[in-house]
Design a binder for these strands. Structure first.
Length: 383
DNA sequence: GACGCGTGGCT
DNA sequence: TAGCCAAGCGT
């Protein structure tokens, strides 16, 4: 599929400015000094202000990098501050239960990340006196920290001169070097070499953390300018060095599927407290194991009934069209009996405790939307 | 090396 | 409405 970025983004212009390509870097590689200068000048005036920028606590950098794996910045911002208020240090995280950690992570997705972050914190406290390792090689051995995250933490938090290659950097470098379609093993190896050649060698420059800032600038360029579908080439600081300039194909996306889903909302009063019926997902479930959700209802149980709420919920490539049915009155006993779950998997939970329960994102969304749960779910320890 | 793992705002 | 998108990791 052709990228139409050029035409779409040039409404007010006759054509792109004609700028000669700096050098024949398709074979020789990008000219590093000039590239870095252009990139960093742009980054210093255009970098987004994000809560994890300009901090000096490696633990916070670690948390932010794990949260950012495959996750939008906006979603991370919503959880980052909350998480760090609840678990301000590695020790605090290590001492928490896994359920507490998952409860704060609820809604961020990829819950394995939270479990591995928790396990790594416990390992660090047990084996390393609570101190995060300071090199990429050591970080790489921790659960949940792979090639990308180890390089990101090492360069951003500790100034190590090591190249970071994420999806953004890969896209930027393939396009810059005229290999935009080379999404192969050879292409990735080429990108790694290019990225390594561009990282500043000096640990610290007159502006601060040379390698960490460079890496963040590369990613920022991919995230805000060199976009996957429609790159904003007119705003690109290294346009003059680019071989493709928006003229390249973009890979097709996976097709989306739609599926119906139905859940039961069952509330009961116990004196002054309200309780909601939740179902705990199996520990061996492939998706969201051990987390809590509203009890699912079979489709044939909801025929002819009006839902209390309709929401859409997207999981990977499937859009779930979700209906929630209330069973608060005695007339709805039939609906409650239609829940196929085993009794052991069902649990009445006080609504004022929902913030401490590891809910699935969908359960959290539904309970908040129906005012069963506060929007601010995290309860701080009594201060 | 391929696959499975979540999410929700935007259009 | 339904499709698109976005800072990886482990097996």
């Amino acid at each position: 599929m052709r990228a139409h970025a050029r035409a779409e983004r040039l409404n007010d212009f006759e054509e792109l400015p004609v700028v000669p390509v700096d050098a024949d870097f398709k074979d020789r590689g990008l000219e590093a000094v000039g590239f870095r200068r252009k990139l960093m000048n742009w980054y210093r005036s255009h970098a987004r202000e994000l809560p994890w920028r300009g901090i000096s606590d490696p633990y916070r950098t670690w948390v932010s990098e794990v949260m950012l794996q495959q996750t939008r910045v906006a979603a991370v911002i919503e959880h980052y501050e909350n998480f760090l208020r609840r678990f301000p240090t590695i020790v605090a995280l290590a001492l928490a239960s896994e359920a507490e950690v998952l409860a704060v992570w609820s809604g961020l997705g990829y819950y394995r990340r939270a479990r591995m972050l928790h396990k790594a914190a416990q390992f660090i406290v047990r084996e390393r006196g609570g101190v995060l390792p300071g090199t990429a090689a050591e970080l790489r051995t921790l659960p949940g920290i792979g090639e990308y995250t180890s390089a990101a933490i090492a360069s951003i938090a500790f100034g190590e001169s090591i190249a970071v290659v994420d999806g953004n950097v890969e896209r930027v470098l393939l396009r810059l070097t005229g290999r935009a379609e080379m999404a192969t093993a050879a292409g990735r190896a080429f990108v790694q070499t290019q990225a390594a050649a561009l990282v500043p060698r000096k640990k610290v420059d007159e502006r601060g953390n040379a390698a960490g800032d460079h890496n963040q600038a590369m990613m920022e360029l991919g995230a805000t300018i060199c976009l996957p579908r429609a790159p904003l080439c007119l705003h690109c600081p290294v346009y003059s060095m680019c071989r493709t300039r928006g003229e390249h194909v973009t890979p097709p996306r996976a097709v989306q599927k739609s599926r119906p889903a139905a859940y039961l909302l069952s509330l009961r009063k116990r004196g002054t407290v309200t309780e909601v019926l939740l179902e705990r997902r199996a520990d061996d479930a492939s998706l969201m194991a051990g987390m809590y959700e509203l009890p699912p209802l079979p489709q044939d149980a909801i025929q002819g009934r009006e839902p209390l709420l309709r929401v859409r919920h997207a999981i990977t490539n499937t859009n779930y069209y979700v209906q929630v049915f209330a069973a608060s009155g005695p007339q709805d006993r039939g609906l409650r009996r239609a829940v196929p779950a085993a009794k052991d998997d069902l649990e009445w939970v006080r609504t004022n405790r929902l913030g401490m329960v590891p809910l699935t994102g969908l359960a959290r969304k539904v309970l908040q939307r129906l005012d069963v749960m506060e929007v601010r779910p995290v309860r701080l320890p009594e201060t």
